[in-house]
Design a protein around this nucleic acid. Structure first.
Length: 261
DNA sequence: ATGGTCGACTCTCGA
């Protein structure tokens, strides 16, 4: 029985993460790897590195900030960048989608928002609303569709450490969480929670928090969501903490999902 | 547990 492994990983600079990526891609044998915060323009994106490991790769980035990519050892078809909705900014370095083995893969790096009174937070809320419209325009609820990425939202109290202290945080504010649930309500299942309902499961540990990983002070803000037809084929979904114990880790770690083919 | 680090690129910003 064939399986397909799809992962999301905020690498915090793809070029500085090449040693971690090499080790992780070879040990995980991931089939579809969605990256965020590649932090490089396309001219200096290390496409040859992925190709040398037998992966195709599509990407769109900018200098120092943002940037998304999809790598796969299967053909990558029908690639789109940004919202294509005529609204500025088009967010081409935060949103990339493609079709791989008949699965529609949407990879997003959603704005963090800075603070709830900052204009970037309004952009973040607008980003989620535009995601809902993108799904309406391009997909049907019956499609095999997977939406992954760093979404900069921790959906519930068990997705953060000390939720009471985070009520006004841009990744945990009520308005944002309600909106996220609304967009998910288009037809998505949280694949991670389907398989791991318990607390203490995080994908991001702040570099600034001393021994955050050891003390498990983190956030679950990297998500794997799928439509029910694809979601019913999921076998497992988990956070792989290994890359956080390696040299030069990202502040995020891969979230991995496995589906029956 | 966003004072306390890391990455890219300047000498500061974003997360």
């Amino acid at each position: 029985m064939g399986e397909i492994k799809i992962a999301t990983f905020n690498v915090n600079s793809v070029r500085s993460r090449i040693p971690v990526l090499e080790k992780w891609i070879q040990s995980s044998r991931v089939n579809v790897l969605c990256l965020q915060e590649t932090k490089t323009v396309d001219e200096t994106f290390p496409a040859g590195f992925f190709e040398s490991l037998g992966y195709n790769v599509v990407y769109r980035g900018e200098k120092a900030y943002n940037g998304v990519a999809i790598a796969s050892n299967y053909p990558i078809e029908d690639v789109h960048f940004g919202f294509e909705d005529g609204e500025e900014p088009l967010a081409e370095t935060r949103l990339i989608r493609a079709t791989i083995k008949g699965i529609n893969v949407v990879n997003t790096y959603i704005p963090q928002g800075k603070s709830i009174d900052h204009e970037d937070y309004q952009y973040k809320l607008r980003f989620f609303k535009r995601m809902g419209m993108l799904f309406d325009r391009n997909f049907r609820k019956e499609d095999h569709l997977i939406w992954v990425g760093d979404m900069n939202v921790a959906p519930t109290d068990i997705d953060v450490t000390s939720p009471e202290r985070k009520r006004d945080h841009v990744c945990f504010h009520k308005d944002l969480k309600v909106l996220f649930e609304e967009v998910k309500g288009w037809g998505f299942i949280d694949i991670f929670r389907k398989h791991r309902p318990g607390e203490g499961e995080f994908s991001f540990w702040d570099y600034r928090v001393k021994n955050a990983l050891e003390r498990n002070i983190g956030w679950r803000i990297d998500h794997i969501l799928a439509t029910s037809s694809l979601g019913s084929l999921s076998i497992d979904c988990y956070v792989d903490r290994d890359p956080r114990s390696w040299e030069k880790p990202s502040d995020h770690t891969p979230v991995v999902s496995i589906f029956k083919e």
